[in-house]
Design a binder for these strands. Structure first.
Lengths: 192, 192
DNA sequence: GATCCGTGATTGAACGTTCATTCAGTCATT
DNA sequence: AATGACTGAATGAACGTTCAATCACGGATC
């Protein structure tokens, strides 16, 4: 019953793709609707306003990321392995679904990301926090606030993806080195 | 002679502040002009269009950051000290001038950040790349492409600032741990 | 010193466009 | 025939940009 109507998802996915290409201003409802093969007016059957649509898109993307990453995590492994799984799964996901990463970045740095929005219950945020807390409690990570560890790791993932996206063509040499990044991050956060 | 007209700087600073508060859409030329105490039409004496104004703002902010950071760097010190100076100076700068960081993030993740824009000669980008190259060549950093090292460090700085901004009030405990971040980053990138 | 003129900067109302949103009408299903 | 989903043209507000009018000021003239 928590099933989201398929037309609603169609609209969200259409908005996601458009926003990746053109940003928030470059994505009028008329275009979003056209790409989703519905009429402009229909968008308002599913969302109160464009703003509300974008807030729901934010929740949607984070819930998709959570679904994907949490289901591939194996809590029975030791934490170091789980960390590299986490890293690889997240970078692959962002690589496959470029619009996820692009939308999240745009949203986060935009004024949509109000204080209210940040205080909203955030399953993905709580999951990552719990993940890193386990690392700390099992003694494999530095004894720091898991929010901070999480922030550092996520920041690196984002930097990496951005790097890959921007420097797709040139600097083939550099791309060799990219494999070393998760190790560097691990060396930074592990218990020494 | 390369002096930028003070009215032009007034407009840029006004736009910077407004964009930090309200983002690109929330910063119409009429408002930018009002905050800069000029008429809307005058903006077009200094910039061809709103887009061109935003591109110039991007160049302006990066040149200000370069000026500030490069003048405080002391190449005579050993690289580890220079790294911590770099870190502290950059975080302080972004803390003092919140609009710099906010604008750069919004710009980078927006469609303004076209391929053409990225190919433009970028003194700040070249400076940081040279900085990390020196670290590699002096044997104090891991032998990686300096672009990648630069990216990792900048990503962490940004994450830290974001963290500070968003979690200003709550989690006072966490803020103790924030001091440890540059050390963690250094442990990740130093030659082991 | 007072007055006038010319020039370039500055103004802000007006224009045309784009967009979010609405709603009267149409369609599909039962 | 009734119901509810769907449509897309119409509406009005907001915006980027233009440009005729005004202003500020330095020099020329008396």
């Amino acid at each position: 019953m928590d099933q989201i109507s398929s037309k609603k998802v169609q609209i969200l996915e259409s908005a996601l793709e458009l926003i990746r290409e053109k940003g928030f201003h470059g994505s009028p409802i008329s275009q979003v609707a056209k790409h989703a093969s519905v009429a402009a007016g229909s968008v308002y059957t599913y969302f109160e306003s464009k703003d509300e649509m974008i807030f729901e898109l934010y929740r949607y993307v984070k819930s998709e990321v959570l679904k994907e990453i949490s289901e591939k995590d194996d809590p029975k492994k030791n934490f170091e392995d789980r960390f590299f799984d986490f890293w690889n799964n997240l970078t692959s996901l962002y690589q496959e679904r470029v619009a996820f990463q692009s939308f999240l970045e745009q949203f986060t740095s935009s004024p949509y990301n109000t204080e209210t929005m940040q205080l909203e219950t955030d399953p993905w945020g709580r999951w990552t926090e719990a993940f890193f807390r386990e690392g700390v409690e099992s003694g494999q990570l530095r004894p720091l606030n898991p929010k901070i560890l999480s922030m550092m790791v996520m920041g690196s993932v984002i930097s990496l993806i951005r790097f890959r996206t921007y420097f797709k063509t040139k600097t083939a040499s550099a791309s060799q080195d990219l494999h070393l990044i998760p190790q560097m991050v691990w060396d930074g956060i592990k218990f020494q």
